[in-house]
Simulated scan of single mutants.
Amino acid sequence: MVLADFKEMAVEARLKVVPYSRCKYMELSSQVAACFNMSWQPEFQGKIKLAARPIFKVSNDAFESINAPLPKTPDGQCILPPGTVVGITRDYEYSAQVMALQTSGGVFENSLSDLTSLQKLAARRFQAAVIMSNDLEVRNRKAQQSGTEDTVRFAFNCGLVNSTIGFSLSHPDGLRALDIYDEGYRRIEANGVLERLRRRWFPE
């Protein structure tokens, strides 16, 4: 979608696939003009500006071991007992509900990816793992990808955040690229290109 957005504006964009933590570091240090997928955090103030429209919404989901289920509230709130070891992915931006787990005594342990967190959860190295899924994929997709779908499962939701592309305010091309991207998004949404891309990626 990002490439189609810039193409609509007759601009060639080059993508480089790197771990998200490196992507964010490169943008904060002005090595690249933009990085995705990002969700707003206070640390971005004055450094990164997000695109006007989200690419998708990200669900912050707590997963549990099937053989060691988590205690749950009757109304499914995002609450865990103090001392619960929770796997998260390093440098991801999480919802306020997830961060409240740490404030209330949860012990956060970093993994390199959501897939690694699920594998550690399956191995009982974590008691819970917070996994990101978006509104264009099934919630259990990463469990399938990590080979843990028979040992872990969704427990409860810990909120939604918007995820999009962020542009560096200090990179010489950052603000110009942001203006181009926002206008390109408006155009591909209006002319049907965005909807066709979504149908192609995620056919019903």
Rank of each mutant, 00 (worst) to 15 (best):
S117C: 07
R22P: 00
L50E: 03
T116R: 13
P71T: 04
Q41T: 05
V138M: 14
V2H: 12
E183N: 08
M38Y: 01
M132V: 14
K57Q: 09
G105W: 04
I188N: 09
R124T: 06
K57Y: 12
Q102M: 13
S95E: 04
E12N: 14
M132P: 11
S65Q: 10
S21M: 13
F167A: 06
G46W: 06
A62V: 05
I180T: 10
F126M: 02
P172N: 08
A68K: 10
E109G: 06
P42F: 01
S133I: 09
L70M: 01
D135V: 11
N60V: 02
H171D: 03
A155D: 03
C35K: 00
K16R: 15
I165W: 11
K24M: 03
L197D: 13
R14V: 15
V18D: 04
K16A: 15
G46A: 02
L197S: 11
R14A: 15
G166A: 05
E8Q: 06
I88A: 03
Y181F: 15
N60A: 05
A13E: 12
A68Q: 11
F108W: 04
L175D: 09
Y20I: 12
S146G: 15
L80P: 00
P69K: 04
V2T: 11
L70G: 00
D150A: 15
E137F: 13
V161E: 13
R141S: 11
K24Y: 00
L118E: 06
N140Q: 15
V11K: 10
D114R: 10
D91P: 01
D5S: 15
F44V: 01
L197N: 11
M9D: 09
G192Q: 08
L160V: 10
D179P: 12
E149S: 10
S113D: 14
A100S: 06
F63G: 03
D61M: 01
G192A: 04
R176Q: 13
E109V: 15
V11E: 09
D173A: 14
S21W: 15
S163Y: 07
G46Q: 00
D75A: 06
F36A: 11
E149P: 08
A34L: 06
W40L: 07
F56M: 12
R187L: 06
M132K: 14
E64P: 00
A13W: 12
S30H: 05
Q119K: 09
C158L: 08
D91Y: 00
K7G: 05
R198I: 15
E189S: 07
L178S: 12
Y185F: 14
Q41A: 09
E8R: 06
D182S: 14
G106P: 01
G106W: 03
D173Q: 15
S104H: 14
Q41R: 09
